[in-house]
Nucleic acid binder design. Structure first.
Lengths: 244, 244
DNA sequence: CTGTGTTTCATACTGATGTTTGAATATGAA
DNA sequence: TTCATATTCAAACATCAGTATGAAACACAG
């Protein structure tokens, strides 16, 4: 057994070089880890990579957060209070005609996805969670997903004159949500299929406007004539076109 | 440096040796690896887990496929010829009214997602690829994603009277695609938000029917009165936004 | 200054994973 | 049989990741 541990010979250098100006290591780790976790996912992201990017020691994560999962939990918990979500919530809570609220929600959600100043790493974490769930997914859904969806159900239910827990209301809510989420979840597909699409604010506005139009077309039509749609109880028989 | 491929003799059948499924190790590995890769993703899936499940030696993967990526490539390549895709292609190619084709495509795609006999591991691989792309994603997109989307563009473009590469056509195609994909990509979200939703064939039909109705409402409306909507889209002619 | 508690650091340990290797076994032909 | 090839196997190797540890560096009260 050689317990002889090589003592450090000499002082390497003054590390007061870049003290990361008054930013505590803990905060820096949280910031860097957020982006790296969002980029690689929980499992593929390594503590060493995070610590190098944060100019911290490998042991810093264990010291400040216990272990890797502790850091990740903090990152997710922090991302749940992001400003982007507040935009969506306030859009849902405002007092306005339902159609305006729906437009505002769609736009807020899309804006939160692709911002130029802040990267969209909050949502990229969700993408990884959907592919490979960790214990954080339950909290993400119960704290964010379910409440927001519940409000969307109430909004849409009110617009089509059905209770929030009606199947039709839920279908419509998923239709709206799907149109939005595809721009986050299927981003590589989007880029491959539409290479020259630049996610400028103007482009995002156009997309949001389209999604709202696309959705409102059906919602208005359903409200004015619900019986024509709710007929699809079990088997849709032949897909005969409605009167043109 | 080893042989990249075992020799090929035309002797596929030789099961008299072992009654316990003397399926060649190579095929068994492919089969098992498909499910495990779809479940855990490329990185999280381990060769040992695959080999144990396939009752093969750890070295079997390296012997038959060179390395882990070689096995994964074969799995993806094999999944691209799955029967599910053929259903979508044939739905797109059939000679029928455009609205019927759209309904058939939506339904085929949804059916391919959740089947009771066969698990949906082909699409679950796509979910992982979207979260953490591997070299296989490029092939997946160029071989499957882009051609299918191109046909969808032509179909919808024909329905709304715009060229396939018009922005409005693409927006509509994404609206349709998003409504479908959300049921695959956001499955955990779906289950949490709608726990008592059973993916029976009847339920899938109802969903497909709804998505088609939801989408056709806008498409029909746009076709009958395009000018009311194009004020926001950049039709190649007039990019004027400020309508005063 | 000294002492004490906190933070950072270099380093080592443990386990897991992809890969290699060389021997052992099976297979089929001369 | 004997030989050549194909395949399987157990074991080892190399690397990397998460974690642990003890000392050094720091901050600050006394």
């Amino acid at each position: 057994m050689n317990n002889a541990r090589p003592q450090l010979k000499l002082k390497p250098l003054k590390r007061r070089r870049r003290p990361a100006i008054s930013e505590p290591t803990r905060d820096k780790l949280l910031d860097v880890a957020g982006r790296i976790f969002a980029d690689r996912g929980y499992r593929a992201a390594t503590i060493r990579e995070i610590c190098i990017a944060a100019r911290a020691n490998v042991a810093a994560v264990n010291y400040h957060f216990g272990d890797k999962l502790g850091l990740y939990t903090m990152v997710v918990q922090q991302s749940m209070q992001a400003a982007e979500l507040e935009g969506i919530r306030s859009a849902l809570d405002q007092l306005a005609p339902p159609e305006d609220i729906l437009r505002a929600v769609i736009r807020a959600r899309l804006n939160s996805i692709c911002r130029r100043d802040r990267p969209d790493w909050h949502f990229r974490i969700l993408v990884h969670e959907l592919a490979q769930p960790t214990p954080a997914l339950r909290r993400l859904i119960s704290k964010i997903g379910r409440p927001l969806f519940q409000r969307l159900l109430e909004l849409i239910g009110g617009m089509i004159g059905l209770p929030p827990d009606d199947d039709k209301t839920r279908f419509c809510a998923f239709s709206v949500m799907g149109q939005i989420l595809v721009f986050v979840l299927a981003n590589p597909l989007l880029e491959a299929v539409w290479p020259d699409l630049k996610m400028t604010p103007e482009q995002l506005d156009r997309i949001a406007y389209h999604i709202a139009d696309f959705s409102l077309s059906y919602i208005r039509q359903f409200r004015s004539n619900p019986s024509a749609h709710s007929a699809n109880g079990t088997t849709p028989a032949t897909p005969s076109r409605a009167s043109k």
